[in-house]
Design a protein around this nucleic acid. Sequence first.
DNA 1: ATATATTAACTTAACGTTCGTTTACATAGT
DNA 2: ACTATGTAAACGAACGTTAAGTTAATATAT
Lengths: 197, 197
Amino acid sequence: MRPLNPKNKEEILAIVIPLFAGAGYSGVSMRTVAEKVGVTPAAIYHHFSDKQTLYLAAMAQAFVDKADSLEKILSNGAAPEKRLAQFVARFCELLYNDNDFSTLIQREIMDGDKSRLQFLATEVFDNLFQGVIKLCQELDPQDDPYLLAISLIGIVMYHFQIAVLKPYLPYSKGDHSDPQVVAQHVTRFMLQGLKTC
Amino acid sequence: MRPLNPKNKEEILAIVIPLFAGAGYSGVSMRTVAEKVGVTPAAIYHHFSDKQTLYLAAMAQAFVDKADSLEKILSNGAAPEKRLAQFVARFCELLYNDNDFSTLIQREIMDGDKSRLQFLATEVFDNLFQGVIKLCQELDPQDDPYLLAISLIGIVMYHFQIAVLKPYLPYSKGDHSDPQVVAQHVTRFMLQGLKTC
DNA sequence: ATATATTAACTTAACGTTCGTTTACATAGT
DNA sequence: ACTATGTAAACGAACGTTAAGTTAATATAT
């Protein structure tokens, strides 16, 4: 019988992305993939030649269009401080709404071989990173722009990376998960540091 | 023949920790463990009842004593700014010298179930985190101490997390890997933010 | 001091399961 | 007729794990 809901590649990827984000490459079997998609394992091989190809396709799909809205903000011509606030707010929103995104990046950083890391750096990050670098240069021409950019990106990403640990940490309040609350904190902290000047 | 170099548990754990840090729980097989240790798979089961037990023992071992030197700095009675600088410097050194440490934490955050996350939060982080919270409260009594503490920890950890991506990122210089350089940047950035006041 | 029993640290060999993958075949729409 | 999308069944390899036996050091008894 011809299946009632023939699956195309994108449908499969949409199902597979959270699987790989949740358990990593070796933690997800082709049989699990097939079961979640609702077909037999062999059917998956009709769409993707092997597991590695499926994984790489899922990575590429997960990163598609994710950087676009951030890059637009970075080059919208507003004042640096304003751009920083907008960038951080949008970044927080993005990480909050798509948890798989930052998880997959983290897994690639830990598991990726040289070629995959290079792909991540040049194809996913490059444009965005250059925009952040430029913003940092405008915000503080005297500091090292690379270190500043890493600090900015890291400070935002970490708040959402450790979100899963939050229930067990002291002093944690509910609204610490709110992307707007985090964004406001980060922006203020970036601009004036710890001490009120 | 009795083995010439009988392995005890700690020897095995020392070999196993970088394996799990490098490939994760499901990426490391008991046969790989045995081969790296230099014995047959069955010999591993003489020391650890199963793979999960071996993994948890490796985690516990990797975290042992790691937090001690940091906690000492946090409660050494120096001025808050001084303590911050010392804490950041020591933290950077620690992450630089023991790459497995932050990698294992990251993997636990991504892969750990509720009980393992709770263990991580209460047994490994709790004391340290409370110390950072207290330091943040002294440094800036008006800001939210939790958000501030996460920002401080995250900003430091991220610099070393993405170290593997550094060769492919623009504007990256060699000394950006130097823990002292990173520490100085982070400390200055924490205290005065982006703008020179 | 010597013989004996016990124990720690292994090996060899295999078990049942799951893995990625392939082959051969079936069906339904164009 | 052809193609897209499947299924059923199986392949060899790798997986976690176990059972049974071996060796060398140590403890105990005579």
